[in-house]
C-alpha cells in the first residue's frame, strides 16, 4: 500500500509536471505522438493520423499476400488490413504483438502491429533530428527522425501514401 507521504509526493510530482508543460509549449511548436514499442525499440507516430488503439483479437491470415501483411481484422464492422512493420525494419521475430494502432488519412485506413502501447506524448519538432544519411531504402523513406530519447518517429503520411503497400495480385 502506498503511504500517505508517498501519495503526497506523487501528487506533487504530477502537479509539477502539469505545471511545467505550458512553459515548453510556449517555446516551441509541438506535435502530439503516440509512443509504442517494437521489439526493444521505441517508436512514435503522429497522433493526428491515429484513429484508435485496438486490442488484437481474431486476426485472420490472408493467403497469397506479401510477408508484411499479417492478415485482416474486424473492428466494429470495418474490415481492416493489418501490417507488420517489423518486416520493414528487419526487427527480430514475433514478439507479443497484441496491440494494433489503426492509422488513416483520407485515402487509406489500416492497422500496424505493436508489441505494447506506451502512451501519448508531445515532442517539439526541433528535437527531432534527421535520420542518419547512411540509411537507405525503406528506412529512409518511412522515418521522420530520431529524438534525444532514442524515440524513432515514423512518418505516417509517407507510410499511408506508399504504393507498395497496396496489394493487387491475382492468382
Amino acid at each position: 500500500m502506498i503511504s500517505q507521504e508517498d501519495k503526497r509526493k506523487i501528487l506533487k510530482e504530477r502537479a509539477k509536471a502539469l505545471a511545467e508543460q505550458p512553459e515548453k509549449k510556449q517555446e516551441d511548436e509541438h506535435i502530439e505522438i503516440v509512443e509504442f514499442r517494437l521489439a526493444h525499440e521505441k517508436y512514435g507516430i503522429q497522433s493526428s493520423y491515429v484513429s484508435e488503439i485496438y486490442q488484437l483479437k481474431e486476426l485472420t491470415p490472408v493467403p497469397c499476400t506479401p510477408q508484411f501483411v499479417a492478415g485482416i481484422i474486424n473492428v466494429r464492422g470495418k474490415i481492416l488490413a493489418v501490417i507488420d512493420i517489423k518486416k520493414f525494419f528487419e526487427l527480430p521475430g514475433k514478439a507479443d504483438l497484441h496491440k494494433i494502432i489503426i492509422i488513416h488519412d483520407n485515402m487509406m485506413e489500416f492497422g500496424i502491429l505493436a508489441d505494447a502501447v506506451l502512451g501519448t506524448g508531445q515532442i517539439s519538432i526541433r528535437d527531432i533530428q534527421p535520420s542518419l544519411p547512411t540509411l537507405t531504402g525503406i528506412h529512409a523513406q518511412y522515418l521522420r527522425g530520431v529524438t534525444k530519447e532514442h524515440l524513432v518517429v515514423l512518418d505516417a503520411k509517407k507510410i499511408l501514401c506508399d504504393k507498395k503497400i497496396i496489394v493487387h495480385d491475382e492468382i
Binding site: 503516440v34 497522433s47 493526428s48 488503439i53 486490442q55 502501447v117 502512451g119 501519448t120
Partner: peptide, 14 residues
Amino acid sequence: SNLLAVNAAIEAAK
C-alpha cells in the same frame, strides 16, 4: 482501461 486511457488521450489531442 490503459488502452481506453490512451484512446481517450488521442481523442483529446484531436
